[in-house]
Design a protein around this nucleic acid. Structure first.
Lengths: 279, 279
DNA sequence: AAGCATGTTCGAACATGTGCGAATTGACGA
DNA sequence: TCGTCAATTCGCACATGTTCGAACATGCTT
């Protein structure tokens, strides 16, 4: 097996399980431990993984590996992360939530830790974040459809799926919001799909960072006042905030945490990991 | 062979298999390794491929091509590859085809090179094979649903999506087939979803390797006679073949081509191979 | 004949496994 | 809390096999 392929394989395994032992990788990849160490050394100096005695984990926060779909590295990652975290805190056990496609909702998915929970999404990336966590108390429903470049499943199939589903809270990411155009997205079909999403939702929570304000996408999803809540970062200027508050009952301001490298697992607990046993 | 043509060929091969070894390409293209290296050098500086020690891959694409869901490397890979290739050859331009979940159908997807084409699938892995090839002449529709461990999207959402879609040919993988139980799968919901798939299909082509014969899964999808065609490898014993032919109008026997997966290639094996699959 | 694509040769770079001493860890007892 | 020990893990150094690419040779095209 080629070195390069091993590297990809290692990252893939780490995505599934957060951490691996060197010995496990050696068996899984069919090479000696020394080779695994050298691979980890390489990945480590590229900043991809973090080595520790006995194994390695993905570096720092949840996946530095971008969700390939977010080509426009608009950054704001920390901001979005904070917004996502705050949004996730609103989810109540036993409810069913919807997540549209988007970077923020993708991050949100990672913070969903209440159970039982049902999640409906039209984003493959979001679904893939949740699948490894799936359990009898976590249902993940993917709507069908055709995929847009931004990784949303849209179109008649998506709309039809959504029209038969009813969710408690919909978390929706948007590409832009203005007073006149409301919440917008560049993609016509995505707008339509999101409207179908909204129709089936008891509550609409929009998640967005401040750079979205004043931006108008091609297609309107819904007017501002359709949102029950908006979670946005505090960089927003005063006038904008005024306006948003006048249209939306509940505007929650989030200020990015001053960096956290919080609950990264500690190394003295190398949980054994069996690659072959992945169901 | 012209340099330009080789470049196209290399890219084509890479689309199919994620990565190739220089040595493999040299044999496949019938040129020296040095020439392959020069080709890769060109493609690399155009930003098309990414070189690494021993081979190359498409930029930004992981070299791991295994469908994560098939961790139980059930073998028969060469056989399945041949079956998939033969099945793909049946697809006519302008038609719409369905692909159920499964390793064989996943491989089949890689060989779909006629256009225009519409593909409907309930497997995320299959969809992901097709997305990079998507174009105005290739539509990929993913049904919704919840995901089974074997990577099929199933359940009411899937069934509802399928009931509104009509396809020309459905390629279905199965877990088992016997005279009494017909085509079977271990998963109840998957069986139901496959039935919905079949209802919307004008023609049913089952793809399976001979190890599936005599195996009974928990749930019957449909009786043997529901299949219009069966594509299976020639390892099948005579009695089984008799039986199958008596139930299914068209049984196509495939014998594994010397076609081999590049990554399993041994060097002392000089037999040429044509990855393109277009005879 | 000049120019280009390709093959061949060969030393350097790279990749991998093994042996072995050093470093880290966790458990036990004072 | 601290010290000690045994087991594990690490990574250097070396040996071996593979791959790379510069330089040169050959043959085809214009």
């Amino acid at each position: 097996m080629l070195a390069r392929r091993r590297h990809d394989e290692i990252v893939k395994i780490l995505r599934l399980d957060g951490m691996v032992r060197v010995s496990t990788l050696a068996v899984a990849l069919g090479v000696s431990e020394m080779t695994v160490r050298r691979d980890l050394e390489t990945l480590s100096s590229s900043g991809i993984v973090e080595k520790f005695h006995g194994g390695a984990s993905l570096v720092g926060r949840p996946t530095t590996e971008e969700p390939g779909f977010d080509v426009k590295r608009t950054m704001q990652t920390d901001v979005k992360e904070s917004i996502a975290e705050k949004a996730a805190a609103r989810v109540r056990p036993g409810s069913s939530v919807g997540l549209t496609a988007g970077t923020t909702t993708w991050m949100l998915a990672k913070y969903l830790d209440v159970r039982p929970l049902t999640v409906v999404t039209n984003s493959i990336s979001v679904a893939e974040v949740l699948y490894p966590m799936a359990s009898p108390t976590l249902d993940v429903v993917l709507t069908g459809g055709v995929r847009t470049p931004s990784d949303a499943l849209v179109g008649p199939v998506a709309v039809a799926s959504l029209s038969s589903l009813h969710i408690d809270v919909l978390f929706m990411g948007v590409h832009g919001m203005t007073e006149r155009a409301g919440f917008t997205t560049p993609n016509l079909m995505e707008a339509e799909t999101n409207r179908a999403f909204i129709r089936g939702a008891a509550e609409l929570v929009v998640v967005a960072d401040h750079t979205k304000f004043g931006v108008t996408g091609l297609s309107t999803i819904c007017p501002l006042e359709s949102a029950d809540s908006l979670i946005i970062d505090a960089e927003l200027d005063e006038a904008a905030l005024q306006l948003l508050r006048s249209e939306i009952p509940d505007v929650e301001l989030v200020r990015p945490e001053p960096t956290e490298s919080p609950e990264r697992k500690q190394f003295n607990d190398p949980k054994p990991f069996d690659v072959t046993g992945v169901a």
